[in-house]
Each structure stands twice: as structure tokens, then as C-alpha cells.
Amino acid sequence: MTAMLAETAAQLSPSPGLWIVLISAALTDNILLTRFLGMCPFLSISKQLKSAFGMGLAVMIVTGCTCVLNYLLYVHLLLPLAPYGVPAESLKLILFIVVIAGFVQLLEMVIERISLKLYFSLGIFLPLITVNCAILGASLFMVNNVAGKGYDGWDVLVYGFGAGAGWFLAIMLMAGIRHRISGGKVPAGLQGVGITLIITGIMAMAFTIFQGMIRS
């Protein structure tokens, strides 16, 4: 499997192929466990599986959609303006944040309309998502990937959802582990955030092992 993936990666370089994009976004370059982005909601909302599921799902949807939106914005507005001296690199930071904030607002309204149950399980997390740096991080890495690895539109779509899925996976794993250890004996000084951070570190090591699978 490993050899096969590496082979595929070598064949498809510089545009690595959707499967590789997905695997690297979700696992080997897991945005939470290898870059430690989006830690605040990860630490505070991983107490219960149910809310972790809601938060993770919300992050996945928002990351996927905003990555695509920001890709369109970057490729079709900022890059064409660059020859005129417009600083696309600094402008993207501001505009990406605006797009994410606007999209989250919109999503909140849509969810409230579609399902109140979903709204009450996701709704409280959506305002938090606006300031979840994993989402802005994914959009910014996406730009690097477009420039460095030759990602096209489909790659970006898969990358965005993949990065979100990685975050989702990480918080679900953590919620499961925290649920398991909730009945166990954790030293008083390590209870809560302390033990969570230690577990996150171990999880991060496990995930970085995958990194050899894909040649960058």
C-alpha cells in the first residue's frame, strides 16, 4: 500500500492526484495534529462525542466550502490583479477572513432554517468557527499548494474537505479517548486540558508517521 501510494505520488507529480491530495490533507498533514491549528475548540469541545461530532462536522463543511470560495477569489480576482501591482499576498489574508466570516453567518442561517435540532447542536459552535484558525490555515495552505504543487480546482475541493475531515477525525478520536478516560484516574494536576494536550501530542506522533508515505 505504502509503496503503491508513493509510486502514484511520483507518477502524478507535480499535480499529485485526488487520492493523494485527500490522504495528505486528512492524515499526513493533518492540520490539527501536525500544525496544531484550531486547538481552542479542539480542547474545549472534545469532552463529549455528541458535541465533538457537531463541531467536527461544522469545521469540515466550512473548511471545504471556504477553501473553494477562497480559491476562486484568489485565482480569478487576486492573481489577475497582481500584474497591476496589487499585493495579492497581503490582500488574501484580509479577504479570506471576510469570506469565512460571511460564509459562516450564511451557514448559520441556513441550518437554523433546515433543522432546529441541527441548529442547537451545531449553532452554538458556528460563531466559534469564524475564529477557528484551522479554517483560515487551510485556505492559506491551499494557496501555497496551488503555487507549489500545482493544485487545480478539483484538488482544492478535495484538499479543503480533506483538511476538514482530518480535523473532524482528530476531534472525534480525542472525544472518544476522553470519554474512555473519564472514569479512570488522572492525576489532579493533569485533569482536563493537561491530559488532553498530552494525548494530542501522542496522537500527533502517530499521525506524523504517515508522512513518509508521500514524497513532497
Binding site: L78, L81, V86, P87, L91, I94, L95, V98, G102, L106
Partner: peptide, 26 residues
């Protein structure tokens, strides 16, 4: 030297305005 600034401002305004309009419609 003024052109990039105007263009950048216009781009930023266009993006934020269209987002705001979308939110208002929603």
C-alpha cells in the same frame, strides 16, 4: 503608484459588498 491601491481597495470593497448583499438577501 496610486493604481494598485485603488485596485486593491476596489477588490476588497467588491468582495465585502457582495458578501454583505448576500447576507442581507439571506
Amino acid at each position: 503608484s496610486v493604481l494598485p491601491i485603488i485596485l486593491a481597495a476596489a477588490a476588497a470593497c467588491a468582495v465585502t459588498t457582495s458578501l454583505a448583499a448576500m447576507l442581507m438577501l439571506a
